[in-house]
């Protein structure tokens, strides 16, 4: 079948504003949108740029907006977004991150927030000769959070980030939850200065957009709420107040 890809183009070296350009490509309904983009860049227009790598939804390189929704281009089949021959599919870069060129966005801020939650294991006890013991139930608690691939789809879809760019954002909270709910990790306290701050977990308003777009089907909003509850529990046990109602500096 033939489809038209309507792609947002922008190159700061040559453009002052972005514009849409339409490419016609011949595809199978079961091809990935990434395959169609590759066809354009290798055979039609070498100036079209986008990120890619694994091509099956595990590396997180090719998140973009496809017909207005954040998706991975390699995990979206043509038939998922184009219902008939001649259909038009609109492709745009992610929101809330500066556009570098065409479909490439600058993830520096995203990764800075990711690093700010100390996304690494903080050992709770001395390392023994072998492995830490962990029950299957304890392992299951944080399983969902281990699936994140830092693609930024949730970051783009989040309505709170639209009005408050300083919000920590869904993905970084998922990374924090990955460790906070790991029975072996004892790093909640070390992460509180970021999580329990006015721009930490609290701005989340439960729009569920992150959960809806996550290509790994992580229940992100639920993890954010569980993290909020864990922080409240920690503060209450110490008779302290959370930063939920504080103003950002």
């Amino acid at each position: 079948m033939q489809i038209a890809l309507e792609i947002q183009r922008f190159n700061p070296e040559t453009n002052t504003e972005s514009e849409f350009q339409t490419f016609n490509v011949t595809v199978e309904p079961t091809d990935r949108i990434l395959d169609a983009l590759m066809e354009i860049s290798r055979n039609q227009d070498g100036t079209l740029v986008f990120r890619k790598s694994c091509a099956h939804g595990v590396c997180g390189s090719d998140a973009m907006r496809i017909n207005g929704t954040e998706r991975l281009a390699c995990k979206t089949l043509v038939q998922d977004v184009a219902d008939a021959d001649g259909a038009t599919v609109r492709i745009e870069p992610l929101r809330h991150l500066p556009i570098q060129r065409d479909l490439m966005v600058d993830q520096s801020v995203f990764f800075r927030k990711f690093r700010s939650v100390k996304p690494y294991f903080v050992a709770g006890s001395e390392i023994g000769e072998r492995e830490y013991l962990q029950s299957q139930a304890d392992r299951a608690v944080f399983d969902d959070a281990t699936k994140c691939i830092n693609c930024s789809a949730c970051y783009s879809a989040c309505p709170v980030l639209q009005k408050n760019p300083d919000f920590l954002g869904p993905a970084a909270i998922v990374q924090a939850a990955r460790f906070v709910f790991d029975s072996r990790d004892k790093g909640l306290e070390a992460r509180l200065d970021v999580l329990d701050s006015p721009d930490g977990v609290w701005p989340c308003e439960n729009h569920f957009e992150c959960t809806r777009v996550c290509p790994r089907e992580i229940k992100i909003t639920k993890l954010i709420n569980l993290t909020k509850r864990e922080i409240k529990k920690y503060r209450e046990a110490r008779g302290e107040a959370t930063a939920e109602h504080k103003e950002a500096n």
């Binding site: 492995e131 029950s135 299957q136 392992r139 790991d182």
Partner: peptide, 20 residues
């Protein structure tokens, strides 16, 4: 090497008695 990775936080699946 596997113990080192586990000790650095790698979330291995577990046996019923809590081992890797």
């Amino acid at each position: 090497a596997v113990y080192d990775l586990e000790n650095r936080g790698l979330p291995f699946s577990r046996t019923p008695d809590g081992r890797i």
